[in-house]
Design a binder for these strands. Sequence first.
DNA 1: GTAATTGCAAATACTTTGCCACGTA
DNA 2: TACGTGGCAAAGTATTTGCAATTAC
Lengths: 153, 153
Amino acid sequence: MSATPHKTKPLQSVVQETVARCREVGLRRTKALEELLTTLLESARPMTLAELAASTRLADQCDKATVFRLLQRLVEHGVVRRLGLHERAAYFTLLVPGKHNDYLICTSCGTIEAIKAPCPVHHLEDEIRRKTGFQNLYHELEFFGVCPKCVPA
Amino acid sequence: MSATPHKTKPLQSVVQETVARCREVGLRRTKALEELLTTLLESARPMTLAELAASTRLADQCDKATVFRLLQRLVEHGVVRRLGLHERAAYFTLLVPGKHNDYLICTSCGTIEAIKAPCPVHHLEDEIRRKTGFQNLYHELEFFGVCPKCVPA
DNA sequence: GTAATTGCAAATACTTTGCCACGTA
DNA sequence: TACGTGGCAAAGTATTTGCAATTAC
């Protein structure tokens, strides 16, 4: 339709699609919602509540409590996922249909990067779903270690 | 040597082996150390600091801060691993050489159980180690879902 | 004897809630 | 107008630390 790069959908269109998903489950279209979704989508990695609340798009936009409650609603409706990632603070990531990420985390400097390799867990996940009867099954896979930069010479 | 069940090593001997490992890295043999290791070993699943401090073996034995610092030292020396497991509180599990566990967790009732199936991630882990140069690499794999008991009829 | 370990109390860190004002539908 | 949202401030929960007393080696 338009001059979009052929590999990636333009950011704004994904944001609007996601807003639409939110509207369908009964959430209202607010400035804070759009900014939050955009911020999450722009980020290559999961972010903490503190990071989100302090980010450019949200800092003057709204209170930390607002971001918290917004995230809460989004998690509840399956638009955002809350991750552990070993830190004291929780991390949040946008669930874009068809996109799945596992992470590689440096236990020394805390850097988080998404792993590109295909996730080898889906088969086991199907098996568990079948054998245990768990519903809404999903997994979280993280690799921890000390990255080259942090390894002492 | 003695009348040990042939499948599983007797608990006390594993505890003593672990205490020995601790001694080697410079930790002192204290009552709290032995009780903590025994408690972790007896538990089929990871435990939180609060659970550990309140457990039968430790409740009257020592302060929560002591358990905390003990766990801290054990993690530092690779005897215990700290896990995220999606809750607000951190979970701890004893690292017994040759034993590895992934977990299946009910997001509704919080039940945690170890998965028996062989972990399908080791190959990817080796690949990451090779390609990225990360040191001390390990992974954490958890499945989340709603267990049959918690699924509304 | 000396350094590691412990208890108790106090300080942090991050999350969560109450209550009333406000904006979207 | 009505109900979902937002701001501000206060309360909660889990973790972490200071310091003097104790214990293992």
